[in-house]
């Protein structure tokens, strides 16, 4: 059974009487453990798709099932709960709270999940170890480099053991070297069984993932799974070979 099932999903905006179809009748399945990229130029509707997949937004039409549960008609409160428990977000601008240190930032989703402070601490440290940031736990985001901030953000996305992690241009604000380490981290996480969806406009980044979903004008124009066609033999990372 697919982790996420989109059937006939449309998102329609009305701007000054003009109807804009940000998503137009999209069908999509994402299976557990998949590492996919959603690729498309700006304005193609890929962000809208991610928002709907990530339960930040509800579709105008169609049905969306996450983990077997219909969420197209969920209330704002239910959506918040799903975002908290089943979905992790990684953003282009890291979006760590500057007033909190790394550990507190990573603990934040568990605060809303209602975990005890001891459990929060333990699981947050586990997540930080996973992204090799446990030695920076007491630092403020401003004291960290972009790559370190993004690692902390990834730890925050993983800390509640979500069903799927959405990364919106996770390397967009990083230099290419750091960007590659982040992509490698995602790749490693996917090998460990995490379901990850990268949202990007950059085909080079999309090349890292076995499956690519291309969006154009609110429709899926290409849905290529290299594993199925046998063309994908894993990404080539330059990390560690000092390119620049």
């Amino acid at each position: 059974m697919a982790l996420i099932e989109l059937r006939g999903v449309s998102k329609i905006y009305h701007l000054g009487g003009e109807e804009i179809r940000a998503l137009d009748n999209v069908d999509l399945d994402i299976n557990p453990g998949e590492f996919i990229s959603i690729i498309g130029p700006s304005g193609s509707g890929k962000s809208t798709l991610m928002h709907i997949l990530g339960c930040l937004d509800s579709p105008s039409k169609g049905s969306i099932k996450l983990d077997g549960m219909e969420i197209g008609s969920a209330s704002a409160r239910e959506l918040a709960r799903i975002r908290n428990q089943k979905i992790g977000f990684v953003f282009q601008f890291f979006n760590l709270l500057p007033k909190l240190n790394v550990l507190q930032n990573v603990e934040l989703p568990m605060v809303y999940a209602g975990c005890s402070s001891r459990e929060r601490r333990e699981r947050a440290m586990d997540a930080l170890r996973l992204v090799e940031m446990d030695n920076r736990a007491k630092h403020r985001p401003m004291q960290l480099s972009g790559g370190q901030q993004q690692r902390a953000a990834i730890a925050r996305a993983l800390v509640n053991s979500p069903k799927i992690v959405f990364a919106d241009e996770p390397t967009g604000n990083l230099d290419s070297h750091t960007g590659e380490t982040i992509l490698k981290l995602f790749h490693d996480l996917s090998l460990k069984g995490s379901t990850i969806a990268l949202v990007t406009h950059d085909p080079e980044i999309a090349a890292v993932t076995p499956r690519k979903i291309e969006i154009r004008d609110g429709k899926i124009s290409k849905n290529v799974d290299a594993k199925l066609s046998g063309q994908h033999d894993g990404p080539k990372f330059a990390v560690g070979s000092q390119q620049n």
């Binding site: 930040l56 918040a80 908290n84 428990q85 979006n95 809303y112 999940a113």
Partner: peptide, 16 residues
């Protein structure tokens, strides 16, 4: 506003 957006994205409800 941004902080509130982040908090909501990671699961804060209206009531939170």
């Amino acid at each position: 506003v941004r902080e509130i957006g982040i908090r909501k994205a990671i699961g804060a409800t209206f009531l939170d």
